[in-house]
Design a protein around this nucleic acid. Structure first.
Lengths: 245, 245
DNA sequence: CGATTCCTTGAGACAGCTCAATTTCGGTGG
DNA sequence: CCACCGAAATTGAGCTGTCTCAAGGAATCG
């Protein structure tokens, strides 16, 4: 787990303008550059178990990771879906309250806890950015709560696909014209854990959406959306096609 | 909506040490003191509708407020339960994405947006505290997601009561010995909106817990918990009585 | 003390779950 | 390139927890 490359200068970093370092001035970036190091995880590997000591915080540079809660009897709920530029860990806490898992091959840009916390105090732009990112995550969590608490299985699936499509679009992974291609990094089980469903129900709903031509499957993990509007219509968010905040 | 009193100096404020101002030095507190003003809302009043312009941010001083999402067809999910010291609004955004409602009589300590944002930049202790509070909210939202996605109706009720008991205890409203008294400010419908259930199911589960002696009712809104351990056993968080993080 | 709002309880319906059997995909080695 | 293997996904049948619809019953307030 070493030769994955991706070690780069901050200036050339793919997440330079979205991650916790986004607002840094050149001198602040230098300080981050000095304390950063990369780690790689293979698909399926656990980055941390709930309760584990975590000596670092990190940004996701590449790949997808999840945060999840597991009850004693095995029921699992995903509570965070971490895409490139998302932040792992929190200042002032040394153990992860969640299981952190690499669902694809993952590269993290890590900072040892202590130097990072020092930096938070001394460089306002990092703390400022972290606040904004945390508030964005909080908004996302609250939208997710609506999905979990009040939506039907079909609406849940449509919502998940819409969210992933939106995020990939915002990162610039999506060709502007033609059908949207979602390169879904999640298994049916992971989707079920995201949505509070069983994997069978996820599978049935995907089949139903496919049967109605709202989505098309290309292999197991790739989904085509010929008309994003039709998908959004199924999310339940909005009954007459307006734009959803 | 004026003579509710509660207008006080920051130094005498009941939430002085928990709110966004908790870490302020005396001079920072002076600056806050100068830009703050109080507003009162009656039980049931709407503080802001989703999409409304909100010219201020605020701390809850007294009472309970909720944040909720409503779908076009009327389904509602509560996404925030704001007790004294909790913060309303976010820097850099002028409209509330949620309905904000006073579920009891509420007093807010308000700051007009612009001066508050200036203050965030110039006084690190406010921004720092806001970050910590946001991260705490994020953790709470994630625990809530587990409840919404994976717990049974009975576990949901037990979890809600446990959470309220914990929060009241941490504010110091609970007598240390004897049965815990939860002075529940929520209607059955509000509990249902919190938990992603119908009000009938909430009512049935409360009756069931009462029937088994795990809780007792004193009137409609007050709940006695003779043995908090038995209640926690019903939350599903833990199958053998250990302490839940 | 009447009105209103909130709560409780019941009966039947249904969405999603459980358990179980195939089928398909994607990789691997011959 | 093809045949095979294991993991992942699909599909079916029956079950159950929660919802829906509906009818009373209690608390609170003017």
């Amino acid at each position: 787990m070493a030769q994955h490359a991706a070690e780069v200068e901050c200036a050339d970093c793919p997440i330079r303008h979205r991650a916790v370092c986004a607002k840094c001035e050149p001198d602040e970036l230098d300080r981050l550059e000095q304390i950063k190091y990369y780690r790689h995880y293979d698909q399926g590997q656990t980055i941390a178990w709930a309760g584990d000591e975590m000596g670092f915080v990190a940004s996701v540079v590449r790949g997808v990771a999840t945060l999840s809660h597991t009850l004693a009897d095995g029921r699992t709920q995903m509570v965070g879906l971490l895409l490139p530029s998302d932040f792992i860990g929190r200042p002032g806490r040394t153990t992860s309250p969640y299981d952190v898992t690499a669902v694809s091959d993952v590269t993290l840009c890590c900072f040892r806890r202590k130097p990072f916390e020092d930096l938070l105090v001394s460089t306002p732009h990092v703390a400022e950015r972290l606040l904004i990112m945390s508030l964005d995550e909080l908004d996302a969590a609250r939208e997710w709560m609506l999905i979990l608490g009040r939506k039907t299985a079909r609406e849940k699936l449509a919502s998940l696909l819409t969210i992933i499509a939106r995020r990939e679009a915002s990162i610039g992974l999506i060709r502007p014209k033609g059908p949207i291609v979602i390169d879904l990094p999640l298994t049916r089980e992971a989707m079920a854990d995201y949505l509070g469903l069983t994997l069978e129900t996820v599978s049935r709903q995907i089949s139903a959406l496919k049967g109605e031509g709202i989505i098309q499957l290309d292999g197991k993990r790739r989904i085509l959306v010929p008309d994003i509007g039709r998908l959004v219509d199924e999310t339940g968010d909005d009954m007459d096609g307006g734009i959803v905040a």
